[in-house]
Design a protein around this nucleic acid. Sequence first.
RNA 1: GCUGGAGUGGCGAAAUGGUAUACGCGCCUGCCUUAGGAGCAGGUCCCUUCGGGGGUGGAGGUUCGAGUCCUCUCUCCAGCACCA
Length: 956
Amino acid sequence: MARERFDHQEIEKAQQARWQELDLYRADLADTDRDPYYLLFEFPYPSGDLHIGHWYAFALTDIFARMLRMQGKNVLFPMGFDSFGLPAENAAIKYGKDPAAWTNANMETMRAQVRSMGTSVDWSKEVVTSSPEYYKWTQWLFTKLYDHGLAYRKNAPVKWCPKDQTVLANEQVNDGKCERCGTEVEEKNLTQWFMGITKYADRLITDLDPLPWREDIKDAQRAWIGKSEGARIPFRLVFGNEEKDAWRDEDGNPSQVSVFTTRPDTIFGATYLVLAPEHPWVRAAWDTPHDDAVLNKDEVRAYVEAAQKKTERERQENKEKTGVRLEGISAINPATQEEIPVYVADYVLASYGTGAVMAVPAHDERDFEFAKKMNLSVRRVIDPITGSKQENPEDKEKIVAIVEHEGKVLTIHWRPELGGRLTVGGTAEEGEDPAYTAMREIAEETGYTDLELVERAQEQVHHEYFAHSKNKAWVAHTTLLHFRLKSEACEEPKLEEDEKGKFEVEWVPFADAIRDVKDPLHSYALARFLTPGAYGGDGLLRNSGEFSGRDNREAIDDIIAFVGGEKVTNYRLRDWLVSRQRYWGCPIPVVYDPEGNPHVIPAEHLPWLLPTDVDFTPSGKSPLATSRELQERVTRIFGEGWTPEYDTLDTFVDSSWYFLRYLDPKDEHDFSDQSVMKRWLPVNRYSGGSEHTTMHLLYSRFFVKALYDLALVPVAEPFVERFNRGLILGPDGAKMSKSKGNVINPDSVVKELGADAVRMYLAFIGPYNEPGTYPWNLDGATAMRKFLDRIYALKEKVIEGEAAPAEAKALAQATAKVSEDIERFKYNTAISALMVLVRDLEKQEQVSKEAYGELLRLLAPLAPHLADHLWQGLGNEGSVHQASWPSREVPEDDGMTIVVQVNGKKRGEVVLPKTASEEDVIAAARGLQFVREALTIGAISKAVYVPGRILSLVIG
RNA sequence: GCUGGAGUGGCGAAAUGGUAUACGCGCCUGCCUUAGGAGCAGGUCCCUUCGGGGGUGGAGGUUCGAGUCCUCUCUCCAGCACCA
């Protein structure tokens, strides 16, 4: 006989209707009796249908919401729609549908679907970003930010599709191509609106520290902001070897360009200057009155124009360095007073720092590459330090040599304890040329005599080490030499007596040598000559005038002062471009007077409605520019000659404050209620996808900080906790996509197995508090349904009465585990604890009503429909979701089981009363067979007793 | 390349420094059945002379005791990526 399956469709329908009737999930924001808990998940874009990812996002957050409510918290668990965005507009262009109607229809569908999951969403708090009631306040907040200089206009490049004749939003560009037609996208300069998020860059980093977020989320934010501390340093320009007075800036200062560098300590090694193609000085090269200074201005101009045609992406794709020298112009290195060449190259970004860099090829990889290509000089100004720091080391002069021959390196291979594989070298003799010393020692140790010196390193390596044989610390000032074998001429090595037989001479291929030579000094020498590049590390300054010999980090401030620079901090983060040349977005609440000056629209005219008489056909302008109504509205309100702003806001603006509106969604007089915000902010926990770790989370944090500074919100950080969920993959382990045909349709699985089974399967698939990836497995979902069937079947065993002692113990353990795991979003182990409990109860002939009821309460957050149905079946009034969360102490047990280990291995266990002392435990352990056997070999030399858990004996 | 995170059965995964592989899938055996895509019972890391021995990517280390902590190393994933 097949076990009876419950009718999930009927139960779901009935329970969902009942919940709505009882209005179970409405949060009373004014209630002060219970603790408030604001549980937030990212609101969706109303794309039209719900996929399994939506279930994972909503239904699993709902589990926690339900437990909190049963635990007596006043839970706010709202939802809404991020309903402005491109798909609606694309539908308008493609099928001629009204974006508003299209969006509304989708939201209607999705509301029903979200209800079908059995979520406990409080729909009375719903916000819809595309509704005028909402975007009125998006606009109002924009005007507040504008008043305080945080929203402003400037000229900026935008993506432009030459075929469609339209501006594209960044997210419409895939791999540098237009999403719609695949044409290469160009960049165009337009005047755009920005938000001054960089003003908050530092606070956005420092305020991260106390937040209890996962370190990877914080790190992603820090990396996105990209703070770097360095200096701005002016370089004087010289023309035809003579300073040209005509070249002074507006303030009358002599011609100079400033560079930003994080390594001012390397400035003595700056052997040329590089300007970004967009740098104002480059433009000046062909503008009068400077047009005679650059001798090759046609060449420069051609390079700059070519660079500008390339998109940023193209520049980045082609990592091969290119550039042109500005002939006739030089710069003076302010540290060395040397004249150095000036280049234009697109590896320098105009938008970062000052758009100009001092190039230090010896210590910067990119500069090194460029210098190699252009044949520019490389000057080392840092001597590396290898080994480990020693106390008062004694000085020593050493030489390390690389001898190469036909792709191999000459090595001497000592026994590992004597140093392992090393390159050749020796100790320098007083007054002798190191190259000569090296050749002599190489001959003595290896017999090779016919060497030619290829390169002598500019730098010396300071190698600090402790010589155990002499019990003394040394610092070896090491000269590095690079030899090549001219011929294989070889004599008998002349070894010291104590060296004989202790090492072997071997020729080793480059790659093997680099891998096998572990000694840091020799390893540096190999890398230095065999794979030359920039040295980015620290050390002692050399070739640096009065600073030579000092620690590079320690000397930074003095060097900055010496060259007349100033310390500055730069950020990778740029100001947030919020203009979108799109229709379906929040209209930017700005109008322009006849002179073209912007004015924000006064509050009494908000919401500034999105016009409906627009032409969606891409024409190179924002669709709003085609609206007659909009223009007439502006003329009517502001007067003749005034014009509207045609751009709309990035949808990330809409979503940067929606969690504030949830607290007061219907307010017509304010964006949110101050007293409610005081009680309910910050959000206790925010659950979302890792794709929003950087932009959305950062924008929201910026918004709240800005509004905090304007005294509009009471907190400076919006979210106490942040959890990133993982991703559900297709059954094949690949990301679900229509083209792969591995998309799981939740509706059909729900129809087959029920909403509760799908919720629980998703909860069981892996930890919800980690952004992992989990493949969908229908067998697992089916198994979850069977588990629910078993719980259903268990009702036949229920008898009146209280929990028996065995039940009480099992319930107590399950309650502790389930409570803790749901709290930490570790639903998978919470369910496994329930499975253990159910198995225990199934073994019994009968199950007490108390025990079964408690099981149902533990199940209620996970399987809300079935749990409520069965709960009512027990004769309970109301809903299980109104019941209190079980609490049960694990009953005191008078016995305890102590694991006994002998010499680190588990051998057995002893059962003793709880009151047993360490001596009792050891005595009992001595009676065990295996302990007695061990004791015949030796005595107990050590005993470690962890009370109530384990006894570890060391015998022998 | 840089920065994070992670490597545990055939698979998803458990394990405050204290009995490694809980829970589930899959698989195997048996029962029940006309049947099984149902149900029930048992088994399922490897080796074994049945006493045990080995085992959490690899090599070391700390510890009475290491999946967990430390050092080195390999691999995978994610984010950033010419940011000076």
